[in-house]
Amino acid sequence: MNNRFWLILALVAAAYLVFWAVMLVATATYTSPSEVWNVLASREIRYATVLSLATCTITAVLSLLIAVPVSYLMSRRRFPGHTLVDAALDIPIVLPPMVVGLCLLIFFQTGVGHLIEKVIPFTYTIAGVVLAQWVIAAAFAIRSMRGVFDHLSARPEDVAMTLGCTRWQALWHVTLPAARPGMFAAGSIAWARSLGEFGPVLVFAGATRMKTEVLPTSVWLALSAGELEQGVAVSLLMIALSMIVLVAIRITGERA
């Protein structure tokens, strides 16, 4: 009876994984390796690949820079309106991504937006690609880090303070080292989310070849032009990149 219970759960898990494996194999065999190579060797796709890798990495780091303090505050302090703020932090997760892009576009048409753009131009620029990825990726990183800090006891920090630390020192010497694997996980989530981010990037940063074209934009441009094989080739590249980078981050995180 007990074996049957675990067998049913294993079958559900296996069915889910097989479904994914079949989809990936179907995508991988849709086109020939030489066609994939030709597409990936093109100047535009090489540019989009480099831009995707660079912007995702910058976005992941920026996401962690906001996620660590915000999630620490939400985890360790209770204040009036805490529940409201907690819910507000999830807004970018539940909003349709396209709407986020539209909000960014409209914000940068306001007076404040124009002032910011005099210092750093965002609309239809590479900085805009990063910002469009960041507004959503940061929300995922905050949610992930919140779980990390919730599971780390505050007691060691308390003890560190009685041993002469300020709160900053207790955070730096005791809590952040313990949170390091969680920070790698949150960074991975932000990175992966950014690699696939399409809607806000398209709306806010545009889809200009050799300028703001990232890999999801390449897939969209290929499909719009009816070049399915090119779309498949770029999709395969994105799958490979995600797997390589996420495995590398996981290994680095476990060693950290």
Binding site: D158, V159, V174
Partner: peptide
Amino acid sequence: YVPQDGALFPT
């Protein structure tokens, strides 16, 4: 101060 579980620094 020594809390109930010792609260050792995990890393």
